[in-house]
């Protein structure tokens, strides 16, 4: 069923867009970072594997962006001409890899893939059918990603030097991974997507938007995602903390398991605040588009089903 056939109230649409942007931006930006390992991975075989994971994630981003396109955007609005401040990926995705820090790629992938797996599970029964329809395809590929990360984690952890690299990566990345469960600050509707009768026009202005917590409530209340971020976050901690500890790795989670705001970085991405590395990355990936003065993005494949 085409999404456009469903009548959405402005609040419903805002909730839906917010969830889709979160999903798409996380995948796109993480893939962008993963491709940095192409030609630089430790062995030729591991190079091929991570390149494939990058392509999978990009393919997932493409599926989510495509649902936003059904709401009236095009690829240039969503990526190439988009204000970088309106990207909503968690900062986990955008951090550059310190040179040679393969452990960072593995820990990041592990933290992200477990979170994504949980999030996808709670999208399986999404009340928005187009989301539910796409989840299965993505889950099949994510299985490989999680196992890949776990396998590497295990191998690196059995080595002293490997363990030190892993611990440094956990220390650096864990707070940014917590950002994955922070409610997303909504982005105003693009003026071009507001219909003639003006429905939704009130949400073309940032100041008029409800706050992130309210939008998160709508996402769950409408059943676009069946579990709250708080629930997903708990499940995630229950899984990753014992696994990391079993490999001798410490996390910043206190003994009582209570996650406080202080553990999450101020610039966490979900709130529209990013690290300086994001500006550099954005400038780099849009470079050719701007240099050529392009006004559209070349499609090679058909629109996803």
């Amino acid at each position: 069923m085409a999404a456009t056939e469903i009548e959405l109230t402005p609040d419903q649409r805002l909730a839906l867009e917010t969830e889709l942007r979160t999903l798409a931006d996380d995948e796109f930006v993480l893939a962008e970072r993963y491709t940095e390992w192409q030609v630089h991975a430790p062995t030729l075989e591991s190079d091929l594997a991570l390149a494939n994971i990058a392509q999978d994630e990009l393919g997932h981003a493409r599926l989510w962006y495509d649902l936003l396109e059904e709401l009236g955007y095009d690829e240039t609005d969503l990526l190439w001409e988009r204000d970088p401040d309106t990207f909503r990926h968690a900062t986990l995705s955008e951090l550059p890899f310190p040179e040679g820090e393969w452990a960072d790629a593995i820990v990041r992938s592990y933290l992200f893939d477990v979170a994504e797996g949980l999030r996808l599970e709670s999208l399986e029964e999404s009340a928005y059918p187009a989301i539910a329809d796409r989840v299965g395809k993505i889950q099949r590929e994510e299985g490989y990603h999680t196992e890949h990360a776990e396998n590497w984690l295990e191998r690196l952890a059995t080595d002293d030097e490997g363990g030190d690299h892993l611990q440094a990566a956990v220390d650096r990345l864990f707070p940014h991974a917590l950002a994955l469960f922070v409610p997303t600050e909504p982005v105003p509707f693009g003026a071009e997507t507001v219909s003639g009768d003006g429905a939704g026009s009130q949400y073309t202005d940032t100041d008029a938007l409800p706050d992130a917590a309210t939008v998160e409530e709508t996402i769950v209340a409408e059943g676009y995602r069946t579990d709250s971020l708080a629930t997903l976050g708990e499940r995630w901690l229950d899984r990753v903390v014992p696994t990391l500890e079993s490999h001798g790795l410490r996390t910043p989670v206190p003994a009582d398991g209570e996650i406080t705001d202080e553990l999450v970085p101020d610039a966490c991405g979900r709130n529209g605040r990013h690290t300086d590395d994001w500006d550099t990355l954005y400038a780099d990936f849009t470079h050719t588009y701007r240099e050529l003065g392009r006004e559209d993005a070349t499609m090679i494949m058909d629109r996803p089903e």
């Binding site: 392509q55 393919g59 997932h60 590929e141 090679i300 494949m301 058909d302």
Partner: peptide
Amino acid sequence: EVAFGGTTDKSYRWAMAY
């Protein structure tokens, strides 16, 4: 155990897409 060749559209890998 694994989806060989992936489950999302990877036609960009094939000469026929061009």
